[in-house]
Computed example of a mutant assay.
Amino acid sequence: MSMERTKQRDAIGASDPIIRMNDASVTYDDGGSYVLDGVSLEIERGEILGIVGESGSGKSMLASAMLDAVPNPGLLSGEIVHRSSDGTETDILELAQSELRSMRWEEISMVFQGAMSSFNPTMKIRGHFVETLDAHDADRAAGMERARELLSDLYLDPDRVLDSYPHELSGGMTQRALIALSLVLDPDLLVMDEPTAALDLLMQRSILQLLGGLREKYDLTMVFITHDLPLVAALADRLAVMYAFKLVEIADTREMIEDAGHPYTRALLNSTPNLDAPLEEMRPIDGKSPAPINLPSGCAYHPRCPLATEQCREEVPGYHEVTAGHGAACFHWEEAIEEIPLNYTDSLGDTAATGGGAADEQ
């Protein structure tokens, strides 16, 4: 492992990691195009990690890599280790297909974008639960009892939902039913890829509140992937920021909001709609994120960065420690904190911590 990767790993180390990724990369075109580039990341057991970035930054590919579910002909390399509660470590990339299928629902489960497309429209919701339980040789009676409890936890009427077809439920109800389905086998880790993207703001907030409650009740570890930094900030313990298929910054949520070190992270915060800031202070990020086949030399963010120097254009920045547990891949993180003031008003509350409150219509 390179010195840069070692610094990145050390900055994001966890005391009890449930997932450990070392130098994980995904390439296409016989290695010519990177859609995930050397990501090292440890996910702490029991935490909620928010992964944020613009569309096309590699967030969804990172989620797929965690489950060794990269679409062909993508090539996944590096090391991805799952650590069970008893300390047993399993290299996910070394598993046979049958072992991988079991792990994906029993140990690590995923909620994909677009709940409606995740359900068979010709099958009632009950059938999806039964099919999942049977496929993993789980006890059907006990599993359906857990399903009913999960649906109730998500403020849904179990009888109504289980006896409905997907199209008979609202978007928010369908998304919550999918979350319940993903948890029916009691996995250790739940990975959610833009799970609220198609929902209105009120429903998004309600689901985050409910996820906070599920985390406490079932001792879950969660990875929440989104382009909406303020949305996940109310839920996550830590935030990781991706740009151009790399992890560019990671820190505790409060520190990221108050003291982000990477110019891109600060630009993300300043582009966030904010009722407390004047309209003229809103700062859209100039330019656009690069495509895999046209990555800039040096730091990939340099064409959009107001602090870019010749060094940025020529060299890939290493991972610099801003504070303990807070790392940023930027040569000029100290200048960024001084020269790019934040207009984002911190509105973090404890609404997601308790899981209180009902969601939309039953």
Results as ranks from 00 to 15, higher is better:
Glu314Met: 09
Pro317Tyr: 03
Cys299Phe: 01
Glu310Arg: 00
Gly298Ser: 09
Pro306Glu: 06
Leu269Asn: 06
Asp276Met: 15
Val316Ile: 15
Tyr301Cys: 01
Ala277Asn: 11
Ser271Pro: 04
Ala277Arg: 14
His320Tyr: 14
Tyr319Ile: 13
Val316Thr: 12
Glu310Asn: 12
Ala277Lys: 08
Gly298Glu: 00
Pro292Cys: 04
Glu280Asn: 14
Ile293Pro: 07
Thr272Ser: 15
Pro292Trp: 02
Leu268Phe: 06
Gly287Cys: 07
Ala324Trp: 08
Glu314Ile: 04
Tyr319Phe: 15
Cys305Glu: 00
Gly287His: 05
Leu275Asn: 11
Tyr301Gln: 03
Ala324Leu: 12
Met282Thr: 14
Gly318Pro: 02
Thr309Ala: 01
Glu280Gly: 07
Pro278Val: 07
Leu295Pro: 02
Pro292Ser: 01
Glu315Cys: 04
His302Trp: 03
Ala277Met: 14
Thr323Val: 13
Asn274Phe: 09
Thr272Cys: 12
Leu275Tyr: 13
Gly325Pro: 02
Tyr301Lys: 03
Pro284Ser: 10
Asn270Glu: 10
Thr309Tyr: 01
Tyr301Val: 04
Pro278Ser: 11
Val316Tyr: 09
Pro306Asn: 11
Thr309Glu: 05
Arg283Glu: 15
His302Asp: 00
Gln311Gly: 05
Leu295Ile: 12
Leu307Ser: 01
Pro278Met: 10
Leu295Ser: 07
Asp276Lys: 15
Pro306Asp: 06
His302Val: 00
Ala300Asp: 08
Leu269Trp: 01
Ala300Gln: 06
Gly318His: 05
Thr323Ser: 15
Pro317Asn: 07
Asn270Leu: 11
Glu310Cys: 04
Ala291Asn: 13
Ser297Thr: 15
Asn270Tyr: 09
Pro296Glu: 03
Pro317Ile: 00
Gly318Leu: 11
Glu314Gln: 12
Pro292Thr: 05
Leu307Trp: 03
Pro306Cys: 09
Leu295Gln: 07
Asn270His: 11
Asn294Gln: 13
